[in-house]
């Protein structure tokens, strides 16, 4: 039996999601036996233009060259799977979208802006090519990528879980930080998958896994206002890691509009 061919591509991102593979430990060795890792620059294999069964894509589209690259990858892959917030919603760098003109941004950051050539926006892969499956998270976990691979190896479509984080948080036996301490927790509007990491350590969730299935941004926004956050603070809770996610952008726009 021929092994499925897998590629892991990087676009505008921090490389953190690729660590879900590199940090998988013993599972990485097993993975190498189950699939043919034909392109994974961070681990050594470089064949960016190879035809593959599954292409994992990390990072968002921020340059004209990246638009060409992603179209090429799409044409060469049977399944295209985005991994992480950047690839799935545009990432933290999508904060620049629509605020200032790209040139103003660049000038405010770089001493010699003339050397920078990038698009005005940071956008999700799905805005450019068809995406088969999305894995949210900043970063994604080994468990997520390996479970998805396992499902594809079984030749069934992966299971999507867009439940709110609160369900996992309660199952873990955590005490709610919003109810006991008034922390501005985003758990009720955030997709599960991280294992309720922040609340477990007494921190409020900051929505790095993106929107859950049903986001009632208005109701949570009002609650956060009641905790003493200004409307700008509330908007920032939504517009952070996944600023490009529609449900969050709507919630932030509503909050800012309502209170301004």
């Amino acid at each position: 039996m021929t092994k499925p061919r897998v590629a892991i591509h990087k676009f505008s991102s921090c490389d953190g999601c690729q660590l879900a593979f590199l940090n998988a430990g013993a599972a990485l060795l097993e993975l190498a036996q189950l699939v043919d890792l034909v392109h994974f620059a961070e681990a050594g294999a470089v064949q960016p233009d190879a035809a593959v069964d599954i292409a994992f894509v990390e990072g968002s589209i921020t340059t004209a060259h990246e638009i060409e690259r992603i179209q090429n990858i799409r044409a060469n892959s049977k399944y295209l799977v985005t991994i992480g917030a950047c690839a799935t919603s545009g990432g933290i760098q999508a904060l620049r979208n629509g605020k200032m003109q790209g040139a103003d941004w660049i000038a405010s950051v770089y001493a010699s802006p003339q050397f920078i050539s990038s698009l005005d926006t940071s956008t999700a892969i799905a805005q450019h090519v068809k995406v088969d499956y999305e894995l949210w998270g900043c970063p994604v976990t080994s468990r997520q990528v390996l479970q998805l691979l396992r499902d594809l190896l079984f030749a069934v479509r992966p299971k999507v879980n867009a439940d709110p984080l609160c369900l996992d948080c309660k199952r873990a036996g955590n005490v709610c930080v919003l109810v006991t301490r008034g922390e501005p927790c985003m758990g009720p509007v955030t997709r599960t998958g991280c294992g309720a990491l922040c609340p477990q350590f007494g921190r409020a969730c900051y929505a790095c896994f993106g929107p859950s299935e049903l986001v009632n941004g208005h109701a949570l926004g009002q609650r956060l206002s009641g905790l003493g956050l200004t409307s700008a603070d509330v908007a920032k809770r939504f517009l952070f890691i996944n600023a490009g996610a529609e449900a969050y952008a709507e919630a932030a726009a509503f909050t800012e509009h309502k209170h301004d």
Partner: peptide, 13 residues
Amino acid sequence: AARCLSCGNCTLV
């Protein structure tokens, strides 16, 4: 429904 977050906390407690 306009107030509810559909977060399921009520059911899990």
